[in-house]
Amino acid sequence: MTDPHLVARAQEGDLPAFEELVRKYQREIYHLALRLVHDPEEAKDMAQQTFMQAYIHIREFRGQSQFRTWLFRIAINQCYNFFKTKKKFGDPVDSQELVIVEENSNPQEGLIAAEDRSRLYAALERLPPKQRAVLTLKLEQGLSYQEIARDLGGTAGAARVNFCQAVKTLKKYLKTEEGHEVALHSYSTEAARLSRR
């Protein structure tokens, strides 16, 4: 069934119809929350809160935008409220806590990928929440600047500027992370060489 049909049934109190909408969007909402809050447990809580709020206020949804846009808007507001109340902006989180489910991976490639991933996550943590949100919505969800503006507020031009700025900042942080890794790598090899002597 299409989203408008499911939404119409959910507005009449049909819980299974709403749960079908949940199954459709739960991964996207969870990944968006995880990108923003960087904590799997908190992201799970944020995602559940998002769907709870959507269910409570489902009758206020008038269909002027897509249900997905409305849902993303709720998710982002929940995450912003989380930042305000918990003040967890920028807290470093060990990226190895994230469960990796990959099959048939080459060990060497896996190591490089793990290194790249940890560099990427470390750099993302340093980004402001709004730039993180724009990157996620643009690169992972594939939304247009108009849709991003509807989700985050502001204009499409502002969303474009935010995205460009986010990419530049991420590039800069990745360079610094790379520099740190190179420095660490050279220190460890030097230390190993000295110990052999």
Partner: peptide, 14 residues
């Protein structure tokens, strides 16, 4: 940078 980001999506928790 964009390729790095897109090549490492968040893993599915299972």
């Amino acid at each position: 940078v964009v390729s790095l980001y897109q090549d490492h999506p968040l893993p599915d928790p299972g």
